[in-house]
Simulated assay, not measured.
Amino acid sequence: MFYRPEDGHGLKHNPFNAVVTPRPIGWISTRGTDGRENLAPYSFFNAVAYVPPQVMFASTGTKPDRDGTKDSLGNIRETNVFCVNIVEYEMRDVMNVSSGSWDRNVDEFDKAGIARVECETIAASRVANAPASLECKVTQIVQLPGAANFVTFGEVTGVHLRDDCVVDGMFDVLKFQPLARLGYRDYSRVTEVFSLKRPGEE
């Protein structure tokens, strides 16, 4: 099968996000200048650089009360900071609650019963028991083609690692089983790993 996106795919559901899988989930926490907080998962998320450490996430939708974007990006435009919380399998249900298109006045931490703590280097909350959290300051926001497609890049200014996830000096993903987004309504979790050496490595 071949199709041009501009012509449509002719399938029951759009296959695009089922092709680019699995995708890590950035659970983005922000706080607006009015003090209102937001927590929402984004599966168009990844790390993009080591030195300095940098990440990105893409917001691709709108809310009627947010002037052509979503609450996360709206808050980020005001404060230039955000926190990425890593989602473990055990948090799948509360993460899903926070994915709803709630009114701007709804605090997803409260809505889903998620404990929060204050970040160290930015003015925002983070998920208290997340396996890891990355505090970030915005480096740039890029508008992509399309009505509401924005990519936010951030430099990591603080890293939180949950103590039980650090084993023998390494961050061990099997301790928490990262949740990953597949296509449609499907998700997966990491339950096994293997290692490969690059050519020339000892």
Rank of each mutant, 00 (worst) to 15 (best):
M1C: 00
F2S: 14
R4I: 00
D7K: 14
G8Y: 05
G8N: 03
H9V: 05
G10L: 02
L11C: 04
H13V: 14
H13P: 00
N14M: 12
N14W: 08
N14K: 02
F16C: 14
A18L: 06
A18H: 03
V20Y: 08
P22T: 11
R23S: 04
R23I: 05
P24V: 11
T30G: 13
G32C: 14
G32V: 04
G35P: 05
G35W: 09
R36I: 05
R36M: 13
E37R: 15
A40D: 00
A40P: 07
P41S: 08
P41R: 01
S43K: 06
S43A: 10
N46C: 15
N46K: 06
N46V: 11
Y50E: 15
P52S: 05
M56P: 01
M56S: 07
F57A: 10
T60G: 15
G61M: 13
P64N: 12
G68D: 10
T69C: 02
T69S: 00
D71G: 10
S72D: 10
S72I: 14
E78D: 09
T79Y: 06
N80P: 10
C83Q: 05
N85L: 01
N85I: 04
E88C: 13
Y89G: 05
E90H: 08
R92H: 08
V94L: 15
V94G: 13
V97L: 15
S98G: 08
S99I: 08
R104W: 15
F109T: 07
F109W: 04
F109P: 06
A112P: 00
R116I: 11
V117S: 15
V117G: 09
T121G: 13
I122L: 10
A123C: 13
P131G: 02
P131S: 01
P131I: 03
A132P: 00
S133N: 13
L134G: 03
C136A: 11
K137Q: 15
K137Y: 04
K137N: 08
Q140V: 05
G146K: 07
F150S: 09
F150T: 10
E155S: 11
V156R: 06
V156I: 14
G158K: 01
H160K: 07
R162H: 14
V167R: 09
F171E: 02
F171C: 00
F171A: 02
L174C: 02
K175N: 05
F176E: 09
F176Y: 15
F176P: 09
P178E: 06
R181K: 06
R181M: 03
Y184G: 07
Y187P: 03
E192F: 05
E192C: 10
F194N: 06
S195R: 02
P199Q: 06
P199V: 03
G200Q: 13
E201D: 12
E201N: 08
E201V: 06
